[in-house]
Design a protein around this nucleic acid. Structure first.
Lengths: 180, 180
DNA sequence: ATCACTATACCGACTAGTCGGTTTTTTGAA
DNA sequence: TTCAAAAAACCGACTAGTCGGTATAGTGAT
């Protein structure tokens, strides 16, 4: 049966959600505890410091990326399309966690930057195995980043329809016509 | 001859630089004043509140974008290439200001989000006039966003060579082969 | 006298982290 | 099966420090 998420997981969820929806400044210990449904003392029982909580968030991202890489390796022919399309799914566990860590990176958290760089290198390597051509891999990853950037910016401001799935499908079609 | 920047401009510069290099949290009034080489009192003399300073940063971005749009309109044939390539130049006044406002947007500052959305719509419209095909414009803008995202993430973490100009040139070449 | 500041002091709100104490769950011997 | 002791989970008030903002007295150039 599906376990109800543990307090530890709920605390990481709460931290992640606050980072994604309101940014680093709003992700205070009090706010995290409140959202997770525990007291501040309950939070500090599980995580002695905010850095420890952040480390747990980093570990979650690494785990989710590892799973994502396995999916891509399992079907190399679809790896590139999968990478681009999954950038659109901002509500997936991976994308949400990725966004959360990106928020920290943009607050110039050195470890967050290093982790993101490492993950990107891993994606790059798997895409290279699947696609073969370096420039095409760069194109695919940059396109994915652009989609992700657009999607994650659509918080309050009403963006145009740049990131709707049908448009992405047509763009993937255009890319598919490239001979390399 | 080139005026030495006024105190007002130096204060906006300082705010912008701190946002870009250290994120929203580090951009305190004290830090801004220190970097601009004025006292805190000197800052509050020119800007009654941090919101006023932020408004000045927003106005700067709008002005820089308007100039950028004029450049693109002046040579529509090169507009798309110009858009993609200029995304790489993270040290240009426009990209630095854009990054600074993006930092605020990711801290879920509603006005920053609206401004960025507005600017993107303006770029989209000009590119539509220049390129004609909507999907190609989306592709160009997403690619530019991806480049920008990558480049702006390269703060501390040593990124791979994804965003070097030669690679971008080859990718532009690939895009150029698409028939639409 | 006005402008463009410097320098310093202060306030209230907020933040990360601490700590003594309380509740809940688990354990293992009678 | 019962039940008390131990361990784990959790509470919330408190501390020290930070931030945005306010206030005020003074300085030197025009």
């Amino acid at each position: 049966m599906g376990h109800a998420p543990s307090t530890v997981q709920r605390l990481i969820d709460a931290y992640q959600d606050l980072l994604v929806s309101d940014g680093e400044r709003s992700a205070t210990l009090d706010a995290i505890a409140l959202r997770a449904g525990v007291s501040k003392g309950g939070l500090t029982y599980h995580f002695k410091s905010k850095d420890e909580l952040t480390a747990a968030l980093f570990a979650r991202l690494q785990a989710l990326v590892t799973m994502d890489l396995e999916v891509m390796k399992a079907d190399p022919a679809k790896a590139a399309t999968y990478y681009v399309k999954s950038s659109l799914d901002v509500d997936s566990p991976l994308e949400r966690c990725n966004t959360a860590v990106t928020r920290l990176a943009q607050g110039s958290h050195p470890e967050a930057n290093e982790l993101l760089a490492k993950c990107r290198t891993q994606w790059f390597d798997v895409l290279m195995d699947a696609v073969g051509d370096e420039d095409m891999v760069h194109l695919v990853m940059l396109l994915g980043d652009g989609i992700y950037f657009n999607a994650s910016l659509t918080g309050t401001g009403a963006m145009p329809e740049e990131t709707d799935p049908a448009t992405i499908d047509r763009i993937i079609g255009l890319i598919g016509t490239i001979k390399y």
